[in-house]
Design a protein around this nucleic acid. Structure first.
Lengths: 110, 110
DNA sequence: CGACTGCATCGACAAATGTCAATCCAATCA
DNA sequence: TGATTGGATTGACATTTGTCGATGCAGTCG
């Protein structure tokens, strides 16, 4: 007797999700999530010194995380004089929502 | 002259975001994102063999990713006979939405 | 029973990641 | 000008991660 198929076969989602995965990766660290959460709640841009004061991490480590977030396009930075300021990128939430919608679309069974 | 403060100071978000970061980390890999995207679109559970056939990865690698996703609580698995089946966890989308809402709450300026 | 098959687990390994100390750079202050 | 300061960059290092090959195991077929 031939072995029955395991199940009605499913085609694996084949579009490349590298970009979506990259967006999630940007938030896949507690420190970076905290930075973004801070920016999202702030009424104005946030000085780097606030992060170095508030997070229990070395200054260079924080600088590194900020750089990653900026690379992911989730935050923007501006330099005024000696100080550096970071803000949530206007599109940040939309980008996250889009990535989520791509991986787990809202629609329930059609 | 005393150096003026850099800006109105901001308090860093202090709740631990380790759990939220972990959820994002689960999707922070293209292969895992593709697996979840497949499950989210499937009308029924998906056999492991569909993943090994559709993804260009070693069988053991796929098994590893499935394990991570299960550990993150995003998928559920069932074993029937020789075959293994995976489904999207019912709470998967809600968990992601909650994590997103925690990091970047919906509200705009109050 | 014995051969086979689907999937999980283990061991190994290269690559990526998070962290810190040290250094560098530009702007400010005295 | 020279000293100081905020923050970025570099180098080093331990840990984690993604991947594969080999092996193990339970269920199936003959």
């Amino acid at each position: 007797m031939a072995m029955q198929r395991c199940c009605p076969e499913t085609t694996v989602y084949d579009r490349d999700l590298g970009a979506e995965a990259a967006v999630f990766k940007a938030l896949a660290d507690p420190a970076r999530a905290a930075i973004v959460a801070t920016l999202a709640r702030a009424e104005h841009e946030v000085c780097v010194c606030d992060f170095t004061a508030g997070l229990e991490l070395n200054q260079s480590t924080i600088s590194h995380h900020l750089k990653l977030l900026k690379g992911a396009g989730l935050v923007t930075s501006e330099r005024r004089g000696t100080w550096g300021y970071y803000s949530l990128a206007p599109s940040a939430r939309a980008r996250l929502e889009a990535a989520l919608a791509c991986v787990i679309p809202e629609k329930l069974r059609a």
